[in-house]
Simulated assay, not measured.
Amino acid sequence: MSKKVLIVYAHESPASFNAAAKDAAVAALTAQGCTVEVSDLYAMKFKAAATTEDITGGVKDAENFCYAKEIKLASEEGRLADDIKKEQEKLKEADLVIFQLTGVNIKMTIKPVFQFPMYWSSVPAIMKGWMDRVLGFAYAQEKRYSEGIFKDKKAMLSFTTDCPESVYSDTGINGDINVTLWPLQNGILNYCGFQVFAPQIFWDPATGSPESRSSMLEGWRRRLQNLCVEASVYFAPLDYFDKEKGFLLKPEVKEKYASKECGLTVGIHMGKPLPANSQTKAGV
Rank of each mutant, 00 (worst) to 15 (best):
M1K: 15
Y9S: 14
Y9G: 10
A10P: 07
S13E: 10
A15N: 13
S16D: 01
F17K: 06
N18E: 03
A20D: 06
A20G: 06
K22G: 01
A27D: 07
L29P: 01
T30L: 02
Q32L: 12
T35Y: 00
T35Q: 11
V36F: 00
S39W: 03
S39L: 07
M44N: 06
M44W: 02
M44C: 04
A48L: 01
A50M: 13
T51K: 06
T52S: 09
D54Y: 04
G58L: 05
G58Q: 12
K60V: 14
K60W: 07
D61R: 11
A62E: 15
E63D: 15
N64C: 03
L73Y: 01
L73A: 15
S75Q: 09
E76Q: 14
E77T: 06
R79L: 10
A81K: 11
K86L: 14
K90S: 01
I98W: 03
F99R: 03
T102H: 08
G103K: 00
N105P: 10
K107A: 14
K107C: 09
K111N: 12
K111M: 14
K111S: 13
F116S: 13
F116D: 12
F116T: 14
Y119D: 05
Y119V: 11
W120Q: 13
S121R: 05
V123K: 08
P124C: 04
P124S: 07
A125W: 00
G136W: 02
A138K: 02
A140P: 00
A140M: 07
R144H: 09
K151G: 10
D152G: 11
D152K: 14
A155Y: 01
M156S: 11
L157A: 13
T160H: 04
T160D: 03
T160Y: 05
P164I: 14
E165G: 07
S166G: 12
S166A: 15
V167F: 13
G175P: 05
I177V: 15
L181V: 01
L184M: 14
L184D: 03
Q185L: 06
G187I: 08
L189F: 03
N190K: 09
G193P: 08
G193W: 03
Q195M: 12
Q200N: 15
I201T: 13
I201R: 13
F202S: 07
F202Q: 07
P205Y: 01
T207C: 12
G208E: 10
S209M: 05
P210L: 08
P210I: 05
E211D: 13
S212T: 09
S214H: 06
S214G: 12
S215L: 11
M216Q: 15
G219F: 08
R222F: 08
L224N: 00
N226W: 07
A231S: 13
F235C: 07
F235W: 02
A236K: 04
A236Q: 04
F241D: 08
F241L: 05
E244W: 00
K245E: 06
F247S: 13
L248C: 13
L249D: 10
K250M: 10
K250P: 08
K260C: 12
K260G: 08
K272H: 09
K272V: 09
P273Y: 03
P275L: 10
N277I: 02
N277P: 02
S278L: 02
Q279S: 01
A282M: 05
V284I: 08
